[in-house]
């Protein structure tokens, strides 16, 4: 049964996740083409200077990439489930209801993790190629919240899509939007250092939020 559920999720989401991951990798490629261009046109030391002392963020192009991947994945995974209330069929499978949902959630989270890891590792590798460890460290501290926002957005999107009543859906949307803003505060590179661990913890906790909506859905709370 586990394999079948995963296979069903894979069929629904594969093109979205593959395509968007490829686009994200291209975005990273674009970042470093720009870096290379700036290093040769502005002189490398001047470019480093802008990054170190003038708050120029070479990685800012990456800002909403994880968020877009997450929203596309959540939509491709959960919207088919609420069309004609198909998820009710899922709940009739001979498995405990929460287990199926947790499997769906685990599939989505694992897909995001793989996609993000690929993008992040390429970003990290290329950053190390061009910049000293200090600059890379500040960049990592700054991009981590954007990837966390991706996970949080995925969890919140599941919650919103599976909610049956529009009134609540809108309320969840407002809370989710305000929640995601926490990850996108503008500041100096590296300014998120003290908060990153706390945001990671909150994101991890928010992972099971989907269960609440699904529970309301199957109990017919509408």
């Amino acid at each position: 049964m586990f394999k079948s559920v995963i296979y069903k999720e894979w069929i629904k989401t594969r093109w979205f996740i593959i395509l968007l991951t490829l686009i994200a990798i291209l975005a990273v490629g674009n970042i470093f083409l720009t870096v290379q261009h700036n290093m040769s046109f502005k002189e490398a030391s001047n470019y480093w200077y802008q990054i170190l002392f003038q708050n120029s963020h070479y990685f800012s192009y990456l800002k909403f990439v994880p968020l877009i991947i997450a929203l596309a994945l959540a939509s491709s995974q959960y919207i088919p489930e609420i069309t004609d209330k198909r998820i009710k069929l899922t709940f009739h499978l001979p498995l405990r209801e929460n287990r199926i949902l947790i499997m769906m959630l685990a599939y989505g989270t694992a897909s995001l993790l793989i996609s993000y890891s690929l993008v992040f590792l390429i970003f990290l590798g290329l950053s190390n190629q061009f910049f000293a460890a200090e600059i890379v460290k500040l960049a990592i501290i700054s991009v981590i919240p954007w990837f966390l926002a991706g996970f949080a957005a995925y969890f919140m999107a599941g919650l919103i899509i599976l909610e049956a009543i529009w009134k609540y859906r809108i309320a969840y949307f407002i809370i989710a939007a305000a929640f995601l803003l926490l990850f996108f505060e503008t500041g100096l590179a590296g300014s998120y250092e003290p908060i990153n661990l706390k945001l990671t913890l909150i994101t991890l906790l928010s992972s099971i939020s989907l269960l609440f909506s699904a529970y309301r859905f199957r109990k017919g709370e509408m």
Binding site: N98, A178, L182, I208, S209, L211
Partner: peptide, 21 residues
């Protein structure tokens, strides 16, 4: 589990309200 998921959501809502409002 579902009860916990609700309280986590409540906690997140309190957190973001205390920031945003």
């Amino acid at each position: 589990m579902i009860k916990i998921s609700r309280y986590i959501l409540v906690a997140i809502a309190i957190l973001v309200s205390a920031v945003a409002i």
